[in-house]
Protein backbone atom coordinates (compact mmCIF):
# COMPACT_ATOMS: atom_id res chain seq x y z
CA UNK A 1 0.00 0.00 0.00
CA UNK A 2 1.43 3.44 -0.91
CA UNK A 3 2.31 5.80 1.90
CA UNK A 4 0.65 8.85 0.34
CA UNK A 5 -1.95 8.92 -2.43
CA UNK A 6 -3.02 12.26 -3.80
CA UNK A 7 -6.04 11.80 -5.98
CA UNK A 8 -7.61 14.46 -8.23
CA UNK A 9 -6.96 17.24 -5.78
CA UNK A 10 -8.24 20.72 -6.52
CA UNK A 11 -8.04 23.77 -4.36
CA UNK A 12 -9.05 27.39 -4.77
CA UNK A 13 -8.25 30.56 -2.86
CA UNK A 14 -11.39 32.48 -3.77
CA UNK A 15 -11.30 32.60 -7.56
CA UNK A 16 -7.68 31.60 -7.72
CA UNK A 17 -7.20 27.97 -8.72
CA UNK A 18 -4.08 27.10 -6.74
CA UNK A 19 -4.01 23.29 -7.18
CA UNK A 20 -5.27 21.87 -10.45
CA UNK A 21 -6.19 18.24 -10.53
CA UNK A 22 -3.12 16.94 -8.75
CA UNK A 23 -2.42 13.20 -8.82
CA UNK A 24 0.61 11.68 -7.18
CA UNK A 25 1.59 8.55 -5.28
CA UNK A 26 4.47 8.26 -2.88
CA UNK A 27 5.62 4.84 -1.75
CA UNK A 28 6.95 4.07 1.69
CA UNK A 29 10.59 5.15 1.94
CA UNK A 30 10.41 7.19 -1.22
CA UNK A 31 11.84 10.70 -1.51
CA UNK A 32 9.83 13.02 -3.73
CA UNK A 33 11.28 16.39 -4.60
CA UNK A 34 8.88 19.13 -5.67
CA UNK A 35 10.23 22.09 -7.58
CA UNK A 36 8.80 24.89 -9.62
CA UNK A 37 8.67 28.67 -9.82
CA UNK A 38 7.42 30.89 -7.02
CA UNK A 39 3.65 30.84 -6.60
CA UNK A 40 3.20 27.53 -8.41
CA UNK A 41 1.49 25.90 -5.42
CA UNK A 42 4.32 23.77 -3.99
CA UNK A 43 3.86 24.86 -0.40
CA UNK A 44 0.12 24.59 -0.68
CA UNK A 45 0.35 21.01 -1.93
CA UNK A 46 2.69 19.94 0.85
CA UNK A 47 0.59 21.66 3.49
CA UNK A 48 -2.52 19.84 2.32
CA UNK A 49 -0.91 16.54 3.32
CA UNK A 50 -1.05 17.36 7.03
CA UNK A 51 -4.15 19.48 6.63
CA UNK A 52 -2.57 22.82 7.43
CA UNK A 53 -4.56 23.65 4.32
CA UNK A 54 -7.83 21.99 3.34
CA UNK A 55 -8.53 20.81 -0.19
CA UNK A 56 -11.78 21.54 -2.02
CA UNK A 57 -11.99 18.48 -4.25
CA UNK A 58 -10.38 15.07 -4.47
CA UNK A 59 -8.83 12.95 -1.79
CA UNK A 60 -5.56 12.41 0.00
CA UNK A 61 -4.88 9.05 1.61
CA UNK A 62 -2.14 8.07 4.02
CA UNK A 63 -1.52 4.32 4.17
CA UNK A 64 -4.85 3.84 2.47
CA UNK A 65 -6.87 5.90 4.92
CA UNK A 66 -8.47 9.14 3.79
CA UNK A 67 -7.20 12.05 5.84
CA UNK A 68 -10.55 13.74 5.44
CA UNK A 69 -12.52 10.85 6.92
CA UNK A 70 -14.96 11.90 9.62
CA UNK A 71 -13.30 9.62 12.17
CA UNK A 72 -9.83 10.93 11.37
CA UNK A 73 -8.49 12.73 14.43
CA UNK A 74 -6.56 15.65 12.95
CA UNK A 75 -4.10 15.90 15.84
CA UNK A 76 -3.32 12.23 15.54
CA UNK A 77 -2.76 12.58 11.82
CA UNK A 78 -0.39 15.48 12.35
CA UNK A 79 1.48 13.65 15.08
CA UNK A 80 2.50 11.12 12.43
CA UNK A 81 3.64 13.67 9.86
CA UNK A 82 6.58 15.94 10.56
CA UNK A 83 6.92 19.26 8.81
CA UNK A 84 9.90 21.60 8.54
CA UNK A 85 9.28 25.16 7.45
CA UNK A 86 11.43 27.65 5.65
CA UNK A 87 11.49 29.97 8.67
CA UNK A 88 12.20 27.24 11.28
CA UNK A 89 9.34 28.45 13.50
CA UNK A 90 10.95 27.33 16.73
CA UNK A 91 9.30 28.43 19.98
CA UNK A 92 11.40 31.41 21.12
CA UNK A 93 10.39 31.19 24.78
CA UNK A 94 11.52 27.59 25.20
CA UNK A 95 14.97 26.05 25.25
CA UNK A 96 16.04 23.82 22.40
CA UNK A 97 15.37 20.76 24.55
CA UNK A 98 11.86 21.93 25.46
CA UNK A 99 11.11 22.81 21.86
CA UNK A 100 11.69 19.16 21.08
CA UNK A 101 10.04 17.51 24.08
CA UNK A 102 6.85 19.59 24.08
CA UNK A 103 4.82 17.60 21.57
CA UNK A 104 5.99 14.12 22.66
CA UNK A 105 5.10 14.96 26.26
CA UNK A 106 1.78 16.66 25.60
CA UNK A 107 0.49 14.77 22.58
CA UNK A 108 1.92 11.32 23.17
CA UNK A 109 2.07 11.62 26.96
CA UNK A 110 5.64 10.38 27.03
CA UNK A 111 7.25 10.87 30.47
CA UNK A 112 9.68 13.78 30.69
CA UNK A 113 12.81 11.72 31.22
CA UNK A 114 12.16 9.47 28.27
CA UNK A 115 11.27 12.45 26.07
CA UNK A 116 14.47 14.22 27.07
CA UNK A 117 16.61 11.18 26.40
CA UNK A 118 15.09 10.89 22.94
CA UNK A 119 15.52 14.61 22.32
CA UNK A 120 19.18 14.56 23.31
CA UNK A 121 19.81 11.57 21.06
CA UNK A 122 18.12 13.41 18.18
CA UNK A 123 20.18 16.53 18.78
CA UNK A 124 23.26 14.35 18.72
CA UNK A 125 22.08 12.87 15.46
CA UNK A 126 21.63 16.26 13.81
CA UNK A 127 25.02 17.30 15.12
CA UNK A 128 24.17 19.79 17.87
CA UNK A 129 24.13 17.65 21.01
CA UNK A 130 25.78 20.42 23.01
CA UNK A 131 23.12 23.09 22.37
CA UNK A 132 20.21 21.54 24.26
CA UNK A 133 19.92 24.20 26.92
CA UNK A 134 20.22 27.24 24.73
CA UNK A 135 17.37 29.33 23.41
CA UNK A 136 16.67 29.41 19.67
CA UNK A 137 17.92 33.00 19.28
CA UNK A 138 21.34 31.88 20.47
CA UNK A 139 21.74 29.50 17.55
CA UNK A 140 22.71 30.09 13.94
CA UNK A 141 20.10 29.58 11.24
CA UNK A 142 21.52 26.22 10.25
CA UNK A 143 21.45 25.07 13.85
CA UNK A 144 17.90 26.31 14.31
CA UNK A 145 16.76 24.42 11.26
CA UNK A 146 18.38 21.25 12.57
CA UNK A 147 16.52 21.75 15.86
CA UNK A 148 13.34 22.09 13.83
CA UNK A 149 14.10 18.79 12.12
CA UNK A 150 14.80 17.16 15.48
CA UNK A 151 11.53 18.56 16.82
CA UNK A 152 9.64 16.95 13.96
CA UNK A 153 11.50 13.66 14.28
CA UNK A 154 10.79 13.48 18.02
CA UNK A 155 7.23 12.47 17.19
CA UNK A 156 8.57 9.46 15.27
CA UNK A 157 6.70 10.43 12.12
CA UNK A 158 5.97 8.15 9.18
CA UNK A 159 6.35 11.02 6.76
CA UNK A 160 8.49 14.14 6.73
CA UNK A 161 7.45 17.23 4.80
CA UNK A 162 10.02 19.89 3.99
CA UNK A 163 9.01 23.27 2.63
CA UNK A 164 12.15 24.97 1.32
CA UNK A 165 14.12 24.14 4.46
CA UNK A 166 17.30 25.79 3.23
CA UNK A 167 15.94 28.88 1.48
CA UNK A 168 16.30 31.14 4.51
CA UNK A 169 19.85 30.02 5.28
CA UNK A 170 23.18 31.61 4.57
CA UNK A 171 24.96 29.60 1.88
CA UNK A 172 27.57 28.19 4.25
CA UNK A 173 24.83 26.63 6.39
CA UNK A 174 22.88 24.95 3.67
CA UNK A 175 24.98 21.83 3.57
CA UNK A 176 24.71 21.03 7.26
CA UNK A 177 20.93 20.91 6.88
CA UNK A 178 20.98 19.02 3.60
CA UNK A 179 23.28 16.40 5.06
CA UNK A 180 20.80 15.73 7.87
CA UNK A 181 18.09 15.34 5.25
CA UNK A 182 20.24 12.98 3.21
CA UNK A 183 20.82 10.80 6.27
CA UNK A 184 17.09 10.70 6.84
CA UNK A 185 16.46 9.68 3.27
CA UNK A 186 19.01 6.89 3.47
CA UNK A 187 17.43 5.61 6.66
CA UNK A 188 14.23 5.07 4.72
CA UNK A 189 12.08 8.03 5.72
CA UNK A 190 9.25 8.87 3.36
CA UNK A 191 9.89 12.47 2.37
CA UNK A 192 8.19 15.23 0.41
CA UNK A 193 10.70 18.00 -0.16
CA UNK A 194 10.02 21.34 -1.74
CA UNK A 195 13.49 22.55 -2.60
CA UNK A 196 15.54 24.27 -5.23
CA UNK A 197 18.68 22.43 -4.18
CA UNK A 198 19.15 20.48 -7.38
CA UNK A 199 22.32 18.80 -6.12
CA UNK A 200 20.28 17.35 -3.29
CA UNK A 201 17.52 16.33 -5.69
CA UNK A 202 19.96 14.60 -8.01
CA UNK A 203 21.56 12.73 -5.16
CA UNK A 204 18.64 11.56 -3.03
CA UNK A 205 15.36 12.04 -4.86
CA UNK A 206 13.67 8.93 -6.13
CA UNK A 207 11.43 11.11 -8.22
CA UNK A 208 11.08 14.79 -9.01
CA UNK A 209 7.94 16.65 -9.95
CA UNK A 210 7.85 20.07 -11.52
CA UNK A 211 4.90 22.32 -10.76
CA UNK A 212 3.77 25.45 -12.52
CA UNK A 213 0.55 27.43 -12.06
CA UNK A 214 -0.92 24.76 -9.81
CA UNK A 215 -0.26 21.86 -12.15
CA UNK A 216 2.26 19.07 -12.21
CA UNK A 217 3.85 19.61 -15.62
CA UNK A 218 6.62 17.07 -15.47
CA UNK A 219 7.50 14.06 -13.38
CA UNK A 220 10.25 11.50 -13.46
CA UNK A 221 13.47 10.18 -12.05
CA UNK A 222 16.32 12.65 -11.49
CA UNK A 223 17.98 11.03 -14.49
CA UNK A 224 15.03 11.83 -16.74
CA UNK A 225 14.49 15.19 -15.16
CA UNK A 226 17.96 16.58 -15.59
CA UNK A 227 18.93 14.98 -18.89
CA UNK A 228 15.74 14.72 -20.82
CA UNK A 229 12.97 17.07 -19.64
CA UNK A 230 9.98 17.11 -21.98
CA UNK A 231 8.19 20.30 -21.15
CA UNK A 232 9.41 23.69 -22.34
CA UNK A 233 8.75 25.31 -19.01
CA UNK A 234 10.74 22.64 -17.18
CA UNK A 235 13.63 23.30 -19.50
CA UNK A 236 13.38 27.03 -18.92
CA UNK A 237 13.16 26.53 -15.17
CA UNK A 238 16.16 24.22 -15.08
CA UNK A 239 18.19 26.56 -17.22
CA UNK A 240 17.52 29.36 -14.83
CA UNK A 241 18.25 27.43 -11.68
CA UNK A 242 21.23 25.26 -12.64
Amino acid sequence: MPMIEIHNVNKWYGDFHVLKNINETVEKGEVLVICGPSGSGKSTLVRCVNRLEEIDQGEIRIEGKSIHAKDQDINRLRAEIGIVFQQFNLYPHLTVLKNITLAPMKVKKIPREEAETTALALLERVGIGNQAHKYPVELSGGQQQRVAIARALAMKPKIMLFDEPTSALDPEMINEVLSVMKDLAREGMTMLCVTHEMGFAREVADRIIFMDHGEILERGTPEHFFTNPQHERTKAFLKEIL
Binding site: N75, R76, Y91, H93, L102, A152
Partner: peptide
Protein backbone atom coordinates in the same frame (compact mmCIF):
# COMPACT_ATOMS: atom_id res chain seq x y z
CA UNK B 1 3.38 30.56 12.17
CA UNK B 2 3.82 29.78 15.87
CA UNK B 3 0.31 28.41 16.09
CA UNK B 4 0.80 26.60 12.81
CA UNK B 5 4.08 25.02 13.88
CA UNK B 6 2.62 23.80 17.14
CA UNK B 7 -0.60 22.48 15.60
CA UNK B 8 1.53 20.70 12.99
CA UNK B 9 3.15 18.61 15.73
CA UNK B 10 -0.26 17.39 16.85
CA UNK B 11 -0.94 19.79 19.71
CA UNK B 12 -4.62 20.67 20.03
CA UNK B 13 -5.74 24.30 19.82
CA UNK B 14 -5.93 24.56 23.60
CA UNK B 15 -2.54 22.92 24.11
CA UNK B 16 -0.97 25.22 21.54
CA UNK B 17 -2.52 28.18 23.35
CA UNK B 18 -1.40 26.99 26.76
CA UNK B 19 2.18 26.07 25.97
CA UNK B 20 3.15 28.15 22.99
CA UNK B 21 0.96 31.18 22.39
CA UNK B 22 -0.11 32.41 25.83
CA UNK B 23 3.34 32.25 27.45
Amino acid sequence: TQLEASRATGLSFLQAMAYVILP
